[in-house]
Design a protein around this nucleic acid. Structure first.
Lengths: 148, 148
DNA sequence: GTTCAACCTCGACCAAGCTGGAGGTCAAGC
DNA sequence: GCTTGACCTCCAGCTTGGTCGAGGTTGAAC
């Protein structure tokens, strides 16, 4: 069993954040008779998961919901993992796609020579939209990644 | 030139957010003699860029810094684009990698059968760490995506 | 020339994701 | 048994990324 200080040191997550995560139900601890927190080593894995997920733009609520699917005090079954994985895969795939589009639009734009606002496809997205006729909102699909 | 209402409708970005973005220097407008905002159509492209970037976890400050590299009132040169692209590519690549690892750990875990805490690699990351000896913090590389 | 939706500013407020301090307790070492 | 650093519980405050409402102005249409 690890103290909060040991977990903070090993995980690189400040003790203040550890209490905050516990408060929000992302991690759990047991208490000593003197009311101090003690953590299972498995909390380090959860913390790695949490921080990675956060770094790629998922909220703590997303993470909490995902982790809630994993049992705390029994061995996770195959279907535990399947449920967690299924629910995340779609979201992660969508984010990966969005990143690719963002990156490729940028690097692609170098390739195109991009010396003019008039001749660059990236520059002229909204002109294309305008040419579809006035009035109807056309940006939504763009925002979803269609033609950024 | 578009009014704030037209931009809001076409982009799907609330007018409150548009003023907020302008305040933070992410977009610009010109004013009518009566002090109302008018936008170039190119603001729609910027908004698409902003929302996509946000969705994948970049901050408005990241976006502002990137967009600041693009000239507002002249045609961007090839080197304008190269600079923007270079500075983002590394960051985007890193985020894409992190997402892949997160996703593959999850889906990979289904494949492994994962019926036991003892036999699952994902479950045992921290045990491996512990086996490197006590004391030294080992999670940082995990957090960076090394072994989640 | 009046109407009225759409616009303006400004400041309060919100939620998420924390940090830091005050004031007090625990526990391992001397 | 006393010290001292690590721990505890509040709770206030910070930053980011906005929203909402009050109170006033603009401008296109009738």
């Amino acid at each position: 069993m690890l103290t909060i200080g040991q977990v903070a040191e090993r995980s690189g997550v400040p003790h203040t954040a550890l209490r905050f995560y516990e408060d929000r139900g992302l991690i759990t601890s047991v208490r000593t008779t003197g009311n101090q927190r003690r953590y299972l080593r498995s909390v380090l894995r959860r913390l790695a998961f949490i921080r990675t997920a956060q770094r790629v733009g998922l909220t703590l609520e997303d993470v909490r919901d995902a982790l809630a699917q994993l049992p705390d005090n029994r061995t996770p079954t195959k279907s535990d993992w399947e449920r967690l994985s299924r629910s995340w895969k779609t979201e992660l795939d969508a984010r990966i796609d969005a990143l690719y589009r963002l990156r490729d639009r940028l690097t692609g734009c170098i390739g195109c020579g991009c010396l003019s606002l008039r001749s660059c496809a990236l520059q002229n997205i909204d002109d294309e939209q305008a040419s579809h006729g006035p009035g109807a909102p056309q940006l939504k699909p763009v925002l979803e990644g269609g033609t950024l």
